[in-house]
């Protein structure tokens, strides 16, 4: 019998089907249906995703002269770009900056988000809904808006944070965005602030799926709140934490807009992330081949980190 659409049809429908056996043209079109359905997506997919990715690998082995046209513009340079890249101190520095930001934001950010989610879950529903919306606000606010607010708050001379520090005699005015150590931490604080609500929201939804009976049983056994958290909540949050950590890592490794707008990599590249370096090489110096080599490297790093996360966080949860 002809393979029909839909996998498991109960016997009754099958009998009905034989009543109208489809003609050959009908069968042809039926076989074509799924391809027609996916074609709008896949045409775009090939044009705007698959082809650019392959082209990216190609470009990373080329010296591209943007002032020439057609095939003349490209010159094959083998793996020279990668060779240069791995011998450039500025690249290693940007990798270090990205690494620090990612590591600190993911660990502290996730820990704070879990804490916040647990606390929000403990208050009455109406309040917890409002609170979730409040903490979610940075996630729906434009990155540009958030970064500019922070930039003014952190301003050396006019910033409100310095005003508060000085007028309350806590410490002297700090050059938050110009000092080589403080600048990186300013970025990190802003990122944790901005990401908290999103992570907390996702974690809360998972908290609500933990059956209340587990906690009741634990209470009967006399387990403290901390023990309940340690032995019930945390293990059951594992899959959601894997998700939060993995997506967080991918986002932070590719961090661009926030840093570009807040410090632009200054002072002296001390806050320059890999993607900022990439952008600078491509659109500042027109070194598109070299920048593609950075892009390819960055892509591999992201895959490696995702793989690492799954390996070490995911093995006990069923993700």
């Amino acid at each position: 019998m002809a393979q029909t659409v839909g996998v498991s049809s109960p016997p009754t429908t099958r009998i009905m089907e034989t009543a109208h056996e489809p003609t050959r043209t009908q069968r042809f079109f039926r076989g074509l249906t799924p391809y027609l359905l996916i074609s709008p997506f896949f045409i775009g997919f090939i044009l705007f995703q698959l082809f650019p990715i392959l082209f990216s690998f190609f470009l990373s082995t080329q010296q591209w002269n943007p002032y020439k046209d057609g095939a003349d513009a490209f010159e094959f340079v083998k793996l020279d770009h990668f060779n240069t890249l791995f011998h450039t101190a500025r690249f290693w520095n940007s990798l270090r900056v990205t690494g620090i930001i990612t590591l600190v934001c993911v660990t502290i950010g996730t820990a704070l988000a879990v804490l916040l989610a647990v606390l929000i879950d403990a208050v009455p529903d109406w309040l917890s809904n409002i609170l979730r919306a409040v903490f979610f606000m940075p996630s729906v606010t434009s990155v540009v808006v958030i970064t500019f607010i922070w930039k003014q708050l952190l301003n050396r001379r006019y910033g409100l944070i310095n005003d508060l520090l000085v007028s309350n005699h806590i410490m002297d005015a700090q050059n938050f965005l110009g000092d080589s150590k403080l600048a990186l931490w300013s970025i990190i604080v802003m990122l944790i602030w901005a990401g908290l609500g999103w992570d907390a929201l996702i974690i809360t939804s998972s908290l609500r799926n933990i059956p209340e009976e587990y906690y009741e049983a634990a209470r009967i056994d006399g387990a403290s709140y901390i023990k309940q958290f340690r032995y019930i909540t945390l293990p059951l949050l594992r899959p959601v934490l894997l998700f939060v950590v993995t997506t967080g890592c991918i986002f932070l490794i590719g961090l661009f807009a926030q840093v570009q707008l807040l410090t632009a990599g200054n002072p002296l590249h001390r806050t320059e992330t890999v993607s900022l370096y990439l952008y600078d090489q491509a659109f500042g110096y027109q070194e598109f081949g070299y920048a593609s080599a950075i892009a390819v490297t960055l892509t591999f790093i992201m895959f490696a980190v995702s793989f690492f996360n799954f390996k070490f966080l995911g093995n006990r949860g069923e993700v």
Binding site: G254, A282, T299
Partner: peptide, 28 residues
């Protein structure tokens, strides 16, 4: 809801590119 040739391959191809960062395609 459909079975068709190449379904698995296309689906996985899609999933892999889903994980690619925007930088992988920015310059091209």
């Amino acid at each position: 809801k459909f079975e068709f040739k190449g379904k698995q391959v296309l689906f996985w191809l899609m999933i892999i590119t889903m994980m690619l960062p925007v930088y992988a395609t920015l310059i091209p």
